[in-house]
Design a protein around this nucleic acid. Structure first.
Lengths: 269, 269
DNA sequence: CGTTTCCTTGACTTAACTCAAGAGGAGTGG
DNA sequence: CCACTCCTCTTGAGTTAAGTCAAGGAAACG
C-alpha cells in the first residue's frame, strides 16, 4: 500500500485520455529525469519566488499553502503522488503562495522545454494535461464550497472522500484502505478548524463506524455513508473521460463503480 | 459610475500586456458580436450542461455557484464587467457548477473558433488571456484562505478590498467610490455566513468609519485601514505585468499607488 | 398603493474555539 | 536499558463567535 507506484502520472492521465504506448513512454521519460528528495515539513518553493520548472511528485505528499501576517496558515491544495505542481504558473511573474512538503517527498523537475516538446508531439498527452489542470481548478472550487457551507463533520468527511478517490485514481488504495500521512494539525490547516476540533470530529466519525484510522493506515468502513454525510458528488473530479458518457447520474454511477472496484481489490487480495 | 465601460475586457487585459492598436481592435471585434440580455437572478448555464461558448460580461454582475443537495448555496466566484466565464472549460465534458446573474447582465457569446483565431494572430492578447485565467485561479485560492482562516470581519473586509481593486482595474471606481450591486444575502453566500451576521458585520465596519454603503453606492472611507484589517495583500491579483518589476514589496507599492490614483480621480472630479 | 424584497435589531442557542493537562509513541543519548 | 525530549493525539471545562428565530421597518417595484 505504501510502495511507490512506477509512474503515478501516467496512471492518472489514463483516466482522462487513452494513451498510446508512445505517449506512455514519453511520460516515463519525463519522470525519469534527475530526482530530488526533500524531508518532511520543508519548503519546495516560497511565495514571491519566480517558478521556472514544473515539478512532478513521484512519492510523498506536498501542499500549496498561504500564511497570513499573524501566522495563521491555510493549506490550499494537496499534492499527492502523480500530481503536477503548477503546470502553467511560469506565465506569472511571481508565486502568490508557497509549496511545502507534508512527508518526505521524491520529485522530478521538468523544464518548460520538455513540457513544450511533449505537448507538440503528443496531442493526447496534451489533452490529458489540460484536463488535469482543469480538474485541479475544479477541486479548488469544491474546497471553497467545503469551507463555506459544510460544518465540521461534513467538511472532514468530504475531504476524506476526495482524498480516497484521488488515491484510488493513482492505484494507491487497497480495497477500502489507504495510507494517509496527514497529521491532525495538517487536517486543521486544510479544513480551517482547530486541531482540537479535528480530533473530536474524527472521534465522532470513528465511533459512528464510518472510518478507521490508526497511525497512517486509513480505512473507509462505510463509503456510501461517508459520501452521503459529506454530500460528496464526485463529478468535480471529472474522471472517466474515456468511459461511458457521463450524464446527470454521473456521481451516483461513479460511486457505485468505486465500490465495485473496491470489492474486486479486496477479493483479489 | 454606473455607466457601462466601452470594452472592459480591453481595459483589464491592458494591465497584463501592452496591447497594440490592432490587438485592441481585435478585442473590440470580439465584444461587438451579438449581445444577450438576461435579468436579475437568472441562470446562464447549469451544472451538468456542456459549455460550448465562452461568455464575456459587458455589463452587470454574475457569479459561479454550487448548491448542496439540502439547498445551501455557495458563490464560488464573482464575474464583474470585463470578466470572461470559463475560457477553457469546453475541454471538460460537463460543467461541475452553475453560472447565474446577480443583476441584469449584458454579455456576448464568443465561439471557440473566434477565440482560437484571436490567439493565433495576436500573441500579446494570448499572453494576456493566459494571465487572466491564471489570475482567476489565484483569486479562487485566496477565497479558500479567506473562508478557511479569516473571521467574519476580516473576511468581509477582504472581499470588499478585492472587489474594489478589481473594479478599479476596469475603471469602474470614482475616487474611493464604486457601485456594488450585491445584496446582503449575496454577500452571505460569498462569505459563508448568515445574512444576519453579514448585516452586523457591515454595521460594525460602518460604525468604525471604514466604509459607507447606502443602496448600491459603496465608499471606501479608509482603504489603508481596511487592507490592514483584512490582511489584504494584492499580490494575488497579479496586476501591473507591464509596470515596473514587482518585488517583495509589491503589495505595499500597489496599495500606495492605488491611493494615489484614487486621489487623482477625486481631484479630477 | 399594495406587495415583495431587503435591511435591521433583539433575545437566545449552539458549534466551534481556547486553555490546560495528560497519555502514548518514536527517537536519542547517556 | 533507562531517562529524556519531542511530537502527536486525546479529553475536560469554560468561553465566544456566529447561527437561529422572530418581528418590524425601509426601500424598491409593478
Amino acid at each position: 500500500m505504501r510502495s511507490p507506484v512506477a509512474n503515478p502520472l501516467a496512471h492518472r492521465l489514463e483516466q482522462y485520455a487513452r494513451l498510446s504506448p508512445e505517449d506512455r513512454s514519453a511520460l516515463d521519460t519525463l519522470a525519469s529525469g534527475p530526482q530530488f528528495r526533500i524531508g518532511t515539513r520543508r519548503d519546495i518553493i516560497l511565495e514571491g519566488e519566480r517558478p521556472s520548472v514544473v515539478r512532478l511528485i513521484l512519492e510523498g505528499w506536498a501542499c500549496r499553502y498561504k500564511v497570513l501576517p499573524d501566522g495563521r496558515r491555510q493549506i490550499i491544495a494537496l499534492f499527492l503522488p502523480g500530481d503536477l505542481c503548477d503546470l502553467h504558473v511560469y506565465v506569472l511573474r511571481q508565486l502568490d503562495h508557497s509549496i511545502g512538503t507534508l512527508t518526505e517527498v521524491r520529485y522530478v523537475e521538468i523544464t518548460r522545454e520538455r513540457i513544450d516538446m511533449l505537448t507538440t508531439h503528443h496531442p493526447r498527452v496534451t489533452q490529458a494535461l489540460w484536463w488535469d489542470a482543469l480538474v485541479s481548478a475544479a477541486i479548488q472550487r469544491e474546497w471553497t464550497v467545503n469551507l463555506g457551507q459544510r460544518d465540521a463533520m461534513e467538511r472532514m468527511a468530504h475531504l476524506l472522500c476526495e482524498v480516497f478517490f484521488r488515491l484510488r485514481a493513482v492505484r494507491m488504495t487497497t480495497g477500502n484502505r489507504c495510507w494517509i500521512p496527514l497529521t491532525q494539525n495538517d487536517l486543521s490547516e486544510v479544513t480551517g478548524m482547530t486541531t482540537v476540533h479535528v480530533n473530536r470530529t474524527l472521534k465522532e466519525l470513528r465511533t459512528r463506524g464510518l472510518i478507521a484510522w490508526k497511525g497512517r493506515e486509513f480505512e473507509m468502513l462505510d463509503l456510501e455513508a461517508m459520501c452521503a454525510l459529506a454530500m460528496f458528488n464526485a463529478n468535480y473530479l471529472h474522471a472517466n473521460h474515456e468511459g461511458s458518457h457521463l450524464d446527470a447520474n454521473a456521481a451516483r454511477m461513479m460511486l457505485h463503480e468505486a465500490e465495485a472496484v473496491a470489492r474486486e481489490d479486496a477479493e483479489q487480495k
